[in-house]
Design a protein around this nucleic acid. Sequence first.
DNA 1: TTCCGACAGTGGGGTCGCAAT
DNA 2: ATTGCGACCCCACTATCGGAA
Length: 508
Amino acid sequence: MLLIDLARTSTAVAADSARLAKIRHLAESLTRVEPDEAEIAIAYLSGELPQRAVGVGWAGLRDPPEPRLAATATLRQVDDFLDRIKAQTGPGSQAARKALLTELFGALTRQEQVFLSRLLRGELRQGALNGVMIEAVAKAAEVPVAEVRRALTLRGRLPAVGAAALNGGVEALRAFRLEVGRPVSPMLAQSAASVSAALARIGGPAAVEWKLDGVRVQAHRSGETVTVFTRTLDDVTAQVPELVEAVGALPSRDLVLDGEVIALRPDDRPEPFQITSGRVSNRTDVARAREKTPLTTFFFDALRVDGDDLLDLPGEVRHEALAKVVPAELVTPRLVTGDAASGEAFFKNALRGGHEGVVVKSLLTPYTAGRRGAGWIKVKPRHTLDLVVLAAEWGHGRRQGRLFNLHLGARDPLTGGFVMLGKTFKGLTDELLAWQTERLLVLAEGPVDHWAVTVRPELVVEVAFDGVQRSSRYPGGMALRFARVLRYRTDKDAGQADTVDTVRALMF
DNA sequence: TTCCGACAGTGGGGTCGCAAT
DNA sequence: ATTGCGACCCCACTATCGGAA
């Protein structure tokens, strides 16, 4: 199949807003693809690369060569090129990568260049990614969607699962099993404002568990071999020796466990997320990193124990299996209750320990990987501040022509000025977007360029956020985590905004 | 030789609008 | 009315390369 074929499909998918129409376009394309190119086609049309990442980003794609007029590149040829680009490492690799990229793009038409460039930047913007592709694969392969989902849960990668469906049908999909050593898509959680709300949504007794602000891990053990994967299914075994040792010491030799690693201080309070994250990412001197920042593991689920696959069993049954093979100190603290007051008390207790919040888990639901099912609901406290808009950036895509991303500042009583604490674009409705664009242009100070607009610091917004973290980016040395707009405070002027001192007090 | 800027990639994430159910 | 999905981006960190000091 030619790349232009996929580029055209992508354009058609983007042009139709109806999801079913997108699915039709994608499925039609998949029915025509050669068996040995199916994996590539599925990956490209769902915004992924078979190589995952090839070391090319925004900067490398800045000035492409003149396009060709005739489209001749096949999927296989493009894929081979990307393999070669990815393989470039060591001295001179940046130039070599750039040269290969130029050669590749020089062989493409304009439409192919645009498609591949978006794909490489991870900005396909056709309104169809994995979720829609699952349906398209099912349609093209004439198999039930549930079969595709089930296989995807167990295999984690849609291109591989989709190719199996197209080439081997239901039978090939049923051949996917939970395999020790091969990561499963992790189960994700919805969120709720309070434990009572979460319990109400679950509608019965539930497990309330500490939510630790660490890194999600999936540990596999087969015999003496332990492998550890992250949420995105990357292998981090070498980076977390503590976890490998802990799992290696368990009595069971056949395990798949779900949990979290976190750096704790000597008093058992958690380090800031930055510390845990940095430790897990460190690959150059793990031994020294471990000495300085040891990791602690907490498991909260078991997907397989001693030959039994537990994915389809109720949460509480899986937890019982977990508790049987994992000592209590390695199990995430939890409370099973149907009582809102006890649940809230447990939540407060987790916060007192310095933790992020809790996850409320149904006792009944199976391990529904990859989708934010209603089986798990996270609850975190919410802080709010009234901050001043210092500038705004223009939006993209559907937000084109609207001032979208706000620069937020707190009042500095010492200087009478404002200290920037971060940005946010979250929580803004279309209506609010239109209003703020108009309002901010009136307040514009200095040039209105294509990137951002600096404004007189007069507009006050109420912002919610999860916490304050240390920052080397911002002059105040702190940044808001997960900031989102709640509403404009038109009743307040900038002089009534919260101060940097208030923010600083929240940092510890 | 060492330092540092630029870039890519990955960790953590929330909220909106739309289509479909 | 509810749910699922994609789009829209945030900040922090590490690793790497390659040019400057």
